[in-house]
């Protein structure tokens, strides 16, 4: 009943990692994965895979996404687990470069996500990389100071004893369960606890993260090489909300889809995307 991770090939990945470390010692290294390029910032040594359940309260729709926290020496990354699985295929086999049709079929089997956060542990900042419609955005902010209240309650998650902590942060009441793993990190932007967060949920049930596996793969990581527009957190959140709520209208206005009738245009314009913001403020 185990999931076969596309993973590992640890030796090969390790050599890629060593290579990347050597290169990053002097300058920013770009890793060409053939299907995309990655600006390498660090080398991973531990990964935590989370299941993230999100609910769109307006559409009354629920989605399950698999996400991964990648831990390096100076940086941590939080992004899509499926993105990593596809990257692994390219990393473990340098000859792997399927034609477009095959790549499309491959992509159908995975649900990649276009959002990621990169935490700079030395500087105490976090950089968010995201996409709205066809544009890529990024913003950097100081690591959020989440005022956690520790509790003595404990629970066990994937074999680790965890303690409870609660906090009110950016519009939600959060409950976190952190472990003794000595890493001040967790899902998305969550950190600030004396151990790695393995479970996190908000009081409304709109977001639920739970660790479902750990790995010790070694590989270079950073963020995708794209043409990013620099923005701020508030601006991006407003932009993204607007996009999700008016995605149909934006698509019609862009001319990428031409409705065949007035009825169809009305129907298309009323389409909304799944929207479950983690930050409300």
């Amino acid at each position: 009943m185990n999931i076969k991770p596309i993973t590992a090939m640890r030796n090969l990945l390790f050599s890629i990692a060593i290579l990347s470390i050597c290169l990053t010692a002097n300058a920013e290294h770009i890793l060409d994965l053939r299907h995309r390029k990655e600006i390498v910032k660090d080398t991973a040594s531990m990964e935590i895979v989370y299941a993230h359940i999100a609910i769109d309260p307006v559409k009354n729709e629920r989605r399950v996404k698999y996400e991964m926290l990648t831990i390096g020496n100076n940086f941590n990354k939080y992004g899509g687990y499926d993105n990593y699985q596809i990257d692994s295929l390219y990393m473990e086999n340098p000859e792997f470069d399927p034609p477009f049709e095959e790549y499309r079929e491959l992509s159908r089997n995975y649900e990649t996500i276009s959002e990621s956060t990169l935490t700079n542990k030395t500087e105490g900042t976090i950089t968010f990389h995201g996409k709205e419609f066809i544009n890529y955005y990024r913003y950097t902010e100081p690591l959020p100071a989440i005022e956690w209240e520790l509790s003595d309650e404990s629970d066990e998650i994937i074999g680790y004893k965890c303690r409870k902590a609660t906090a009110k942060w950016r519009g939600h009441d959060w409950t976190a369960w952190y472990s003794d793993i000595p890493e001040d990190a967790g899902p998305w932007k969550f950190q600030g606890l004396p151990g790695l967060i393995l479970k996190l949920e908000d009081s409304t049930g709109e977001h639920f993260f739970e660790a479902i596996g750990t790995k010790n793969d070694v590989f270079p990581f950073g963020y995708g090489k794209k043409l990013y527009c620099k923005t701020t957190r508030e601006k991006f959140n407003n932009l993204y909300k607007e996009y999700c709520q008016n995605s149909g209208a934006m698509l019609v206005d862009s001319g990428m889809v031409i409705p065949r009738s007035e009825e169809e245009e009305l129907m298309l314009r009323s389409k909304k995307l799944f929207f479950a913001p983690i930050e409300l403020e």
Partner: peptide
């Protein structure tokens, strides 16, 4: 530190 690898057990 090496984490004891917990294979993803939740059915996909």
């Amino acid at each position: 530190l090496t984490l004891e690898e917990v294979v993803v057990k939740v059915p996909r």
